[in-house]
Amino acid sequence: MRWVNIHLFNEDGELLPEEMETINQLTKIPIHSLNLDAIAVVTNVYRVAQGLRNKMEREVLSEYGLSWTAFSMLYDLWIWESIETKKLAESAGVSKATVSNITKTLERKELCYRKSDTRDRRMTFVALTDKGKQVMEKLYPRFHVGEIEIVSGLSIDEQKSMTKLLRKVIRENHF
Rank of each mutant, 00 (worst) to 15 (best):
L166Y: 11
E90Y: 04
A92S: 06
S82C: 11
A40M: 07
E149S: 08
W80F: 13
I170P: 00
A89L: 00
Q134V: 03
E81H: 06
Y75T: 08
F71W: 13
G153M: 01
E11W: 04
I83M: 15
Q159P: 00
S72K: 14
N173P: 00
K109G: 01
V48T: 12
G65L: 10
L165N: 11
V151P: 00
A38S: 11
L154I: 03
K138H: 07
M1D: 14
L154F: 12
A40I: 06
D130M: 02
K96P: 04
L8F: 00
R121H: 07
I83W: 01
R167A: 04
D157T: 06
K55R: 14
K104D: 15
Y140L: 07
R171H: 11
T69F: 06
N5C: 07
A89I: 00
N5Y: 02
N5W: 01
Q134T: 02
L34M: 14
S116K: 10
E107A: 12
R58I: 08
E11K: 14
A70E: 15
P17H: 06
P17E: 13
K96A: 05
E107P: 04
D12V: 05
R47T: 06
I39A: 05
M20D: 06
E158Q: 13
L128V: 08
T98H: 02
R142W: 00
E90T: 03
T22H: 10
L66I: 09
I31V: 15
L52E: 11
L139H: 01
S62V: 08
S67D: 06
K133M: 04
L36P: 02
K96W: 01
K160E: 13
N24V: 03
N173K: 06
R114H: 03
M162K: 07
Y75C: 08
E21R: 14
I23H: 08
V99S: 02
H174E: 13
F71D: 10
L111G: 02
E110H: 08
M136V: 04
V45A: 15
E21T: 13
E11D: 15
K104H: 12
F9E: 04
F9T: 09
I102M: 05
S72R: 13
S152H: 08
K168V: 06
K55Y: 14
L165I: 09
V41L: 12
M136A: 06
H7M: 09
I6P: 01
W80Y: 14
L88Y: 01
A38C: 06
H7I: 05
E90F: 03
N173M: 05
L52T: 08
L111H: 04
V151I: 13
Y140N: 02
M20P: 00
Y113V: 09
P141E: 06
R121I: 09
G153K: 07
T69I: 14
T27M: 09
T103Y: 00
R53I: 03
S91Y: 09
G65H: 10
A38T: 03
L77F: 12
E19W: 00
E14C: 07
R167M: 10
L34S: 03
M20N: 08
K115F: 11
T85A: 05
E59S: 12
V99L: 04
R142N: 11
V99K: 01
K86E: 14
K104A: 12
K160Y: 11
E14D: 11
I170L: 10
